[in-house]
């Protein structure tokens, strides 16, 4: 009879070495051990916050937003032929 052994035996599976866990640890350790990279991450996050939470929300409303497809077509057609 075929057996699947340890590969599908949840009781003996070594979770600490599972690939997703190793990837997670790789990133967590990487971020923890950053030195000058911390400053850069602060800059990246600040920049993204300014771009998406300030500029995008308050200053850059797409001109055609909130319209359904047909209204957008009509609006652009009117703009291009008036």
């Amino acid at each position: 009879m075929a057996t699947r052994g340890k590969w599908l035996n949840f009781a003996t599976m070594n979770y600490s070495n599972a690939l997703p866990v190793r990837i997670w640890r790789f990133y967590v350790d990487g971020f923890r051990q950053m030195t000058w990279g911390r400053t850069l991450w602060v800059i990246i996050l600040l920049k993204l916050a300014v771009m998406f939470l300030v500029l995008r929300m308050f200053f850059f409303k797409p001109a055609l937003s909130g319209m359904d497809t047909e209204t957008k077509q009509e609006t652009v057609a009117r703009n291009l032929t008036h």
């Binding site: 771009m51 850059f60 409303k61 055609l64 937003s65 077509q73 652009v76």
Partner: peptide, 14 residues
């Protein structure tokens, strides 16, 4: 890309 939608909407749709 923000500017395409806001300042250049005719172009973006076109």
């Amino acid at each position: 890309e923000f500017e395409f939608g806001t300042n250049w909407s005719n172009y973006s749709w076109f």
